[in-house]
Simulated assay, not measured.
Amino acid sequence: MLWLYLLTRIGIWTTAYCTRWVFPSGGDSRTPAPVLAPFQHWDWGHYLHIARDGYFPGQAGPWQSDWDNREAFFPGFPLLLRVVHTVLPYWTPAGLLISFIAGAVAVLALARIARLYVPDTSAGRRTVLFFLLSPCAIFLSVGYTEALFLAFALPAWLAAQRRNWALAATLTALATSVRISGLFLAAAIALHFTLTARTRRDWRALPWLALPALPAVLYSWYLQAHTGDWMSWKHAQERGWFRTFHTPWEAFAHTWHSAFGHSQTTGYAFMFQAELLAMFVGLFLLGLLICQRRWPEAFYIGLSLWALGTSYWYMSIPRASLLWWPLWITLAGWSLRTPRIKNVYLCLVAPVTTVFAVTFLSGHWAG
């Protein structure tokens, strides 16, 4: 598993190296971009600013930081980035190191979870292969939160399957410190607890299930102390990314118009088309999980889709699919029963994965 992980990392680093030559800095074809420049785009800047300067540098309020909306990002990753930076003096390598180690942990945990669901000795390796070659796999290799979140969330789910509720709650709390998605995981684990608790000893673990909410409460309290707004995180999301509530059909209509309407000339249409496809895949997965009566996983996916599908438009759904571990396990199970699926998946997805990687590494929007 780790060899496969390392080989795919080498592939992404090679793609990054080539991208800096194909898309040189400043438009000067004679000058390639700096070596680490391909990894320094979009959300990485927010995490860097938080880790280096804090949320409110110089006691600045949110009215002075509207341009970056840093309150929208949970503190787990920036805090760890600041800690690692005390040992590794350069910020970008520190962020890459976090994602590299966290990704390895996530891969090992994903393989173990897959073996619980698919009765085949190759299930873990096949699941990891599909996961690491998924369209948005580039985000596991950059200074983003996906790898770190999964490094906590997947072991938490594994612990929950083994009814180690204290460990599951603790790891989920750490996941919540990284992304709001940790609360969706907490809800799924709580449902799993309700469905599987049998003995009095099991029910004594019930108070642990409140622990994952603590990071979100503490972060909201911190923001309220500085802004006077308990919902500062949500309002920052609304300012920066139009994450105001809209009905699912309104969100779909806005995304469809952006994918196939006037924005086709802006270069963003492709990404909105990817958002629509990812939402379709997510809904199909949700329906499949419901049919299989896998209620906790369905609850997790359903909450994720509701959160992502009720904004002004769809945004970051392809990237969020990295967090849908039932998807990769389901695909692996199908491919083990029908070997042709593996070849179809690799041939169709590999070009898309490369396009997403080059898009992000060249500084264009990739979800």
Rank of each mutant, 00 (worst) to 15 (best):
E238N: 07
D68L: 09
R125P: 05
E238G: 10
D53R: 00
R70M: 07
W233E: 05
Q64P: 00
F270C: 10
A104Y: 06
L346G: 03
D229Y: 05
V87N: 02
Y117P: 00
L361T: 02
L285C: 05
V87M: 06
M315I: 13
F280W: 14
F242S: 15
T172I: 14
L211G: 05
T8C: 12
L323C: 10
Y300I: 02
T127D: 05
S335A: 13
V217G: 09
L348R: 05
W67V: 09
R243N: 08
T265V: 15
D120L: 08
N69M: 15
C291A: 12
Y17C: 10
V128D: 02
G287I: 04
W241C: 06
P207N: 05
V83K: 01
R30D: 13
N69H: 14
W44S: 04
E250W: 10
A175H: 07
F139A: 09
A94T: 04
G302P: 00
P32Q: 10
G228I: 10
H364I: 08
P326L: 00
F184Y: 11
V178E: 07
P34E: 08
F100E: 05
R243Y: 09
D202M: 11
R52K: 15
T266F: 11
F280D: 12
T86F: 14
F270N: 05
T354Y: 11
G267F: 13
A173K: 04
A168W: 04
P78W: 00
R162E: 15
P89K: 06
I301F: 03
M279A: 11
L36C: 05
F360W: 07
V87A: 08
H364F: 14
A137S: 13
L346R: 01
M1A: 10
L288T: 07
A216T: 08
W67C: 06
L214V: 15
V358W: 07
D229A: 11
A205R: 04
S304A: 14
L167K: 12
L195I: 12
K342G: 07
I301C: 04
A169I: 11
A210C: 14
R52C: 03
V217H: 08
Q40V: 13
W42P: 02
R70F: 01
L174F: 15
H41L: 07
R293I: 08
A114C: 11
A236V: 07
I317M: 08
M231P: 06
S263Q: 13
P318M: 06
P318V: 04
R52T: 13
C291V: 15
W13C: 08
A159G: 07
A298K: 00
W230Q: 06
R30Q: 15
A332H: 02
F184H: 14
G367T: 02
L88R: 09
L283P: 03
L211C: 10
H246D: 04
W324K: 00
H49G: 13
A168S: 13
T172Q: 11
